[in-house]
């Protein structure tokens, strides 16, 4: 549906390098990355409102690289909603319908249907400046969909919202995507949003694609230390392989390679580290070592536990209630277990 080929641009303080992305028809695709990775630039170049210095963009098989934005059939919703402040809610939604071949009655009916579908009908005559963040995003979504775009581009649509509104809108997006079979390309720096909404994703870093694939695959099997950190796999260590074995020397771990290509890194998610009060009876257990708790970061329901083992720092995550029942705190000695099947080599 959307094919981006070798997209590059050179800006005074940033460059995008040969980006290739393919979004399938009806797919929800996430463009992930930290601030300044080039995500919005890609989105805007698909919409035709950003620069393209080289490369090509296709929608539905037709090249749109040089087409003006109004002829692309691509809708866009920004983080700040981008509502026209001089128009009320209804007029914002109806803005693009002037350029559609529809009778006045059909336009009015369509706007009314959209307002009802998005739960904003009571706001029709209200000024957009007095709406909440969630209401603004609903209006922006209704406005973008009013012209029935072939593709919907979403630029961090949830990040400026309060948690309650965010969940609400996230569910609405999911619902709309499946009901209308929309092809969506969403920019976000929040991996949990991508996990919830999208089927596939690309992780960007410094203007290049670090990894592209199924969103669950990226989550479980990151291909680089950057992606590992980005998806929350906070324990990344150098690894090596020889004679049919893979080794993580800094943790004194060694296991059969099982045909894996020679890895450079081993990574473990914090929630996959098991904390034990005392040493288990089986002494020769794999991935078992003593550590000292250096500190804890309280996230409410769970805590991140910083552990010192030799000259390494590991991060574990555990339910706060579990830590309390074990009576663990900074300075305590614990045993750490890393299950073999939870170690990801790349």
């Amino acid at each position: 549906m959307i094919r981006i080929e070798q997209l590059s641009m050179d800006l005074p303080d940033f460059s995008l390098n040969n980006v290739d992305i393919h979004v399938r028809e009806g797919e929800f695709f996430a463009l992930l990355g930290p601030t300044g990775a080039g995500k919005t630039l890609i989105l805007e170049s698909v919409a035709g409102v950003g620069p393209v210095h080289s490369g090509r963009i296709f929608v539905d098989g037709a090249e749109i690289t040089r087409l003006p934005p109004e002829r692309r059939g691509v809708g866009i919703v920004y983080q700040d909603a981008g509502l026209f402040p001089h128009l009320n809610v209804e007029k914002n939604i109806a803005y693009g319908l002037r350029y559609q071949k529809k009778t006045e009655k059909k336009r009015l009916d369509w706007v009314k249907w959209l307002m009802e579908r998005f739960g904003i009908a009571p706001l029709a005559g209200r000024s957009v400046e007095n709406l909440s963040g969630g209401e603004k995003q609903r209006v922006a979504l209704a406005r973008a969909l009013s012209v029935k775009p072939r593709v919907l581009l979403l630029d961090e649509p949830l990040s400026a919202l309060d948690p309650a509104f965010r969940e609400d809108l996230r569910n609405l997006l999911k619902e709309l995507h499946s009901q209308l079979s929309l092809t969506c390309l969403m920019v976000t720096h929040d991996f949990s949003e991508a996990l919830f909404l999208s089927q596939r994703a690309a992780v960007l870093n410094k203007g290049g694609v670090e990894q592209c694939g199924g969103v669950k695959d990226i989550f479980n099997r990151p291909a680089s230390p950057f992606v590992a950190h980005f998806v929350g796999m906070k324990n990344v260590f150098p690894a090596c392989g020889e004679n049919g074995q893979v080794r993580v020397d800094c943790l004194n771990l060694s296991m059969p390679s099982n045909g894996r290509p020679e890895p450079k890194y081993a990574a473990v998610r914090p929630e996959h580290l098991l904390l034990l009060e005392r040493k288990p009876v089986q002494d020769n257990q794999f991935g078992l070592f003593p550590a000292e708790i250096r500190g804890m970061v309280d996230y409410g329901i769970f805590c991140e536990v910083l552990l010192d083992y030799q000259d390494q720092t590991l991060v574990a995550a555990a339910a706060k209630s579990a830590l309390m029942s074990m009576g663990l705190d900074a300075g305590a000695k614990v045993w750490v277990e890393i299950p073999q099947d939870r170690i990801h080599f790349f």
Binding site: V49, I76, Y78, D80, F84, H86, R98, Y99
Partner: peptide, 24 residues
């Protein structure tokens, strides 16, 4: 961004100027 949104909704640059930029 308001102009970019206007263009994505089907308005040309001139139409965007008179419907978005000028009123603001």
């Amino acid at each position: 961004r308001l102009e970019k949104v206007s263009r994505s909704l089907g308005a040309s640059q001139t139409q965007t100027f008179f419907r978005v930029v000028f009123p603001l």
